[in-house]
């Protein structure tokens, strides 16, 4: 029972931190990864609540395709580009 409580505490902290990061991160790619992380944590909750079907959906759509969709949409809107990211890294400072 104790390990389950530990997993719950870790996941609650992870989900809350990732959700706040998704709200406040300036880097849009980082925010997309944070929302994917929220979905991953929530899917662990679904497994512990004995809903493996929902957990699979949440992990596949929320953590997998959802993050990819947000990142691609940001790239299409010109808010994030691969070469811009690399250039700013060469210049020594983070983008945006």
């Amino acid at each position: 029972m104790a390990w389950a409580d530990l997993v719950i505490v870790i996941m609650v902290v992870l989900v809350l931190v990732a959700a706040c990061a998704a709200l406040f991160l300036k880097n849009l790619l980082g925010a997309a990864v944070a929302t994917a992380l929220v979905s991953l944590g929530v899917s662990v909750f679904f497994v512990m609540l004995r809903a493996p079907d929902v957990a699979l959906t949440e992990a596949a759509i929320g953590a997998g395709l959802g993050g990819l969709l947000l990142a691609l949409a940001a790239r299409r809107l010109g808010l994030w580009r691969i070469e811009a990211q690399e250039e700013s890294e060469h210049a020594g400072g983070p983008a945006c």
Partner: peptide, 25 residues
């Protein structure tokens, strides 16, 4: 696997379809 075993184990067409989409993207 997830699609074909949808009636036996957790998962099914929607979940497996998303995994297939990721595999091809």
């Amino acid at each position: 696997y997830i699609i074909v075993h949808g009636h036996l184990t957790p998962g099914g067409g929607f979940q497996g379809g998303v995994v297939l989409a990721a595999a091809f993207v």
